[in-house]
């Protein structure tokens, strides 16, 4: 069966750490980082990259449009 493998790229300087992508992700791939960006926000990053299937849920709800999603079928 074909499997979808996804990955996201977060523009960490635009991310404001609102947590909405973390809640929207159905596979618990994303979490807020302990590090902060230059504005002091804890940006979102992938903590569980193997689980991502590139569904784009995080990018759809992101108010800053800071998430880019990639997906391959293997």
């Amino acid at each position: 069966m074909a499997k979808l493998i996804g990955s996201i790229k977060v523009d960490i300087q635009k991310c404001k750490g609102c947590d909405l992508c973390v809640i929207a992700c159905p596979l618990d791939v994303i979490a807020l980082s302990k590090d902060a960006n230059s504005k002091g926000y804890n940006f979102a990053h992938m903590i569980n990259p193997d689980a991502c299937n590139g569904c784009s849920a995080c990018a759809e709800v992101c108010p800053e449009a800071s998430i880019t999603v990639y997906r391959v079928r293997v």
Partner: peptide, 28 residues
């Protein structure tokens, strides 16, 4: 990840009408 993150596999990106300026709105 470097195999996945390439333009051929793109499924969602910021539209070109929205520019790169960070918005002044509050988080969320």
């Amino acid at each position: 990840i470097t195999d996945i993150v390439n333009p051929a596999n793109l499924v969602y990106k910021k539209n070109s009408v929205l520019n790169d300026l960070p918005m002044h709105y509050c988080p969320g």
